[in-house]
Design a protein around this nucleic acid. Structure first.
Lengths: 281, 281
DNA sequence: AAGTGGTCTAGACCACTCA
DNA sequence: GAGTGGTCTAGACCACTTG
């Protein structure tokens, strides 16, 4: 049995973290009261472009985050739910699966589906640090420290799937949020993107720029680690010399499975951390 | 459009990493030769307990890792595949979805399904560090540094969903692999597990013990960060005083959605890192 | 226009859990 | 034995991409 395990979201930063950590665990431990799952499903759009299962999942998720459906409570069973919403069971199942994947619901055969206990951590959708920061209401700024064409070393070539020595665009940026430095990012881009302009990198996230060019990132492989920062890194991040930094190496692939970007980043660990939810399949 | 993003695996360690990083990128960049996907599907067991879609996914995955189906190549379309394997389309789709979720395949509407380019990173299934190490052929040993009952502080109570001050089992362990210290782990367990014995913790992973008690972890929420190690941590991990450590905080939930374990761990960053694959949904 | 994946349905049988 | 989720089928229509 190769029960591989699966994760769900990633990467949250907020300098003001922990502030919203109040527990709302008023419920009795064994509580499983069968809340009649309210009809917050009445506005399903059956002709629009949004998939039915997604609409259902959205409404369910909202209700769970609202605690309209309280933590720990049981959901109505699949067949009844399907009947009440006038959708097929596979459709309702797909919606539920989506939330199981997000770690909001748990299913047990023969038992039922329950809302996971415990504080729900806000999901962070992914794209790039720039957009993460925007989304959390901060004001990201970027300083381009370096921007040059040079030959790929072996690690870079391997990651991008190009020959060693091929000319690549090498960009170094410092990312700040509300004036505080958060990350130093080095990105290596294959020849096709060698014309990316320095100025646009100051104003937009890398992934925004790529998306505007019709490139959409579909898969990214990351390695997260730590080490002591170099003198230069510490000075840029405005931390004491020799301090720890959080590091992330990433290779991103587009929808054709082609490597698009390789990056080596380091983060100020007091201002940034990665959040991941693992879900057993 | 809430394109939340999804991850796939997590947590790889191996002191001897990077050793297997040879590229096998002999293929022409634009290559998409339509390899007739061999009949490595002929031994499907249609009556056993293993789901059909899982068997198909397994065989496909093996073929991709083997490069029997080369990186970048297109897969046969779903309907034909379904017909040839004599399964329904939903079944074959489910198998493919599983691999898309692992970051091995990419699908595009109107185009087809392709194998992702680029080095495939070995998946690491999840359970616990102990089993990770075992799986990678190392010999994990555990030293129990502390093992006591004491009242939960606010952070711990919040994570576990119990009242502050409730008695919890607090365990501190040092994990070594082949004699080298890798991690210091502090785990807090709710009252129900207060009877866990010190000796069994020396010999088995925490998750193994829990599983033997019929508890299965289904969801875990983790936060990964970095900081300078304390004097005690550095000495235990056998690194220079003040060195960086990689940290992970985790709350694990069982199949009833009940919090089972809260942990604060720190890792030697030269020997351990986290790997994550993100997949756009 | 042809080919692809994306969605959805209606119904079936099974395996598991619990009273 | 009743109720639950887990799997599977057969077929339908749609949206998108490419020639």
């Amino acid at each position: 049995m190769s029960t591989s395990v699966v994760v769900v979201e990633s990467r949250t930063s907020d300098p003001v973290a922990r502030k919203g950590t109040e527990v709302v665990n008023v419920d009795a431990p064994e509580q499983q009261r069968q809340l009649p799952p309210m009809e917050i499903f009445l506005d399903l759009d059956r002709s629009g472009p949004v998939p039915l299962y997604h609409q259902v999942a959205e409404r369910l998720e909202r209700a769970i985050l609202d605690e309209t459906i309280p933590a720990g409570s049981r959901l109505e069973n699949e067949v009844d739910l399907a009947a009440r919403l006038s959708v097929s069971r596979p459709t309702i199942r797909r919606a539920i699966e989506q939330l199981v994947g997000k770690g909001l619901l748990v299913r047990r055969r023969g038992i039922g589906t329950q809302v996971v206990h415990g504080r729900v951590t806000r999901n962070v959708e992914l794209t790039s640090l720039y957009e993460d920061l925007q989304r959390t209401g901060q004001h990201p700024e970027t300083r381009v420290l370096g921007h040059e064409l040079s030959p790929a070393d072996e690690e870079e070539a391997t990651a991008l799937g190009i020959p060693v020595g091929e000319t690549v665009l090498r960009v170094q940026r410092l990312r700040e949020a509300d004036g505080v430095p958060i990350a130093i990012m080095e990105n290596i881009l294959p020849p096709a993107f060698a014309d990316l302009e320095r100025s646009s990198l100051e104003e937009h996230g890398l992934y925004q720029i790529l998306r505007a060019r019709g490139v959409s990132i579909r898969v990214a492989k990351q390695r997260i680690g730590a080490r002591a920062g170099t003198a230069k890194e510490c000075s840029l991040l405005d931390i004491a010399r020799g301090s720890a930094v959080l590091t992330m190496q990433r290779t991103a692939f587009d929808s054709a499975g082609q490597a698009i970007e390789f990056g080596r980043h380091c983060y100020r660990p007091d201002l940034y951390s990665f959040e991941v939810t693992l879900v057993e399949r």
